[in-house]
């Protein structure tokens, strides 16, 4: 894993990606810092981090577009997958290389709250805790998005396609909350939505095991449970779509971090999301080799 990490991390600086990422990230953070903190005279630095969270839409596709797709396009994946290293270590090496670059960018931006310290009359007024929890939330959110980008880069060979699909997927995460509010909240729509999810799940199962009978029976059992629940416990379907989509919203949890609420549940959620994305990424690569 160390070799992959080192290679990936250094490759960011062999081409211009690393320099472009860092300069762009620091420039935009500095811009928001100047507008929010310097010109408006606010001491709350966490607003800067909340505002620049949209930056992920641009920087994450830039960081992850080449991770697996370039290996596939240049056939260098033949070297990696035939080397005495497991696929999980390859994926983790690439993931941590991207994450480290994000961490370096974040560490450099620590200079901005440092500047704010010069303007503080009473040190107790300065919200260190909120800033640190915002940074942690920002880092974890970035980690989740990198995991999504890494997964998408293993699906396509063309980095431009990877970056567009990554952008689209991340954008979906950003609008998820707003989208959830607009969707119908009645019980029947929710049951229909869950039915659609069951269909997707069974289709994936069928593609995985190639046994139509088993996948069909599994589908019928789940639909049976869904119908029974709909008739006997209809209350659980109330605003169901909203509840499901909000559960997947990464940003609503980030708001907790920005508000200084450090919850173990949120940290655990982000870590689980990262592990889940890396897991399906590794599984996808294994499947593609079959």
């Amino acid at each position: 894993m160390r070799a992959i990490f080192k290679k990936e991390f250094l490759s960011y600086f062999r081409n211009m990606t690393g320099y472009i990422f860092l300069s762009f990230f620091i420039f935009v953070t500095g811009l928001f810092f100047s507008v929010i903190n310097i010109f408006s005279g606010l001491l709350d630095y966490q607003y800067v981090l909340s505002n620049i969270s949209m930056l992920f839409l641009i920087i994450i596709p830039l960081l992850t577009m080449n991770l697996f797709s370039q290996e596939k396009r240049n056939k260098t994946d033949q070297l990696l997958f035939t080397a005495p290293v497991s696929i999980s270590k390859i994926a983790l090496g690439k993931y941590f290389a991207s994450l480290s670059l994000l961490l370096i960018g974040l560490l450099i931006t620590f200079i901005f709250p440092g500047i704010l310290l010069f303007f503080v009359e009473n040190i107790n007024d300065f919200a260190f805790g909120r800033i640190l929890s915002s940074y942690l939330g920002y880092f974890l959110l970035g980690g989740c998005f990198i995991a999504v980008g890494l997964f998408i880069s293993s699906l396509f060979e063309n980095p431009i396609v990877v970056s567009i699909v990554t952008f689209g997927t991340l954008f979906l995460f950003y609008i998820l909350e707003g989208l959830a509010e607009k969707l119908p909240k009645d019980k029947f729509s929710c049951a229909l939505f869950v039915g659609f999810l069951i269909l997707c799940l069974c289709w994936i199962l069928y593609r995985r095991i190639e046994n139509f009978l088993f996948a069909g029976i599994f589908f019928l059992v789940l639909i049976g449970i869904l119908v029974s629940l709909y008739f006997f416990m209809p209350d659980i379907f109330d605003s169901g779509i909203y509840k499901i989509l909000i559960w997947f919203s990464l940003l609503s949890r980030f708001n907790n971090f920005s508000n200084g609420i450090l919850s173990l549940a949120d940290i655990f959620y982000y870590l689980s999301f990262i592990i889940f994305c890396l897991g399906i990424n590794i599984n996808m690569i294994e499947n593609k080799r079959n």
Partner: peptide
């Protein structure tokens, strides 16, 4: 098609393979 990283020098590439294969 030899699996080569075009942005590396020959020495860097061979060092990387050495580390990869331990």
């Amino acid at each position: 098609n030899p699996p080569l990283y075009f942005d590396m020098t020959v020495q860097e590439y061979l060092n990387f393979v050495c580390e990869l294969k331990k």
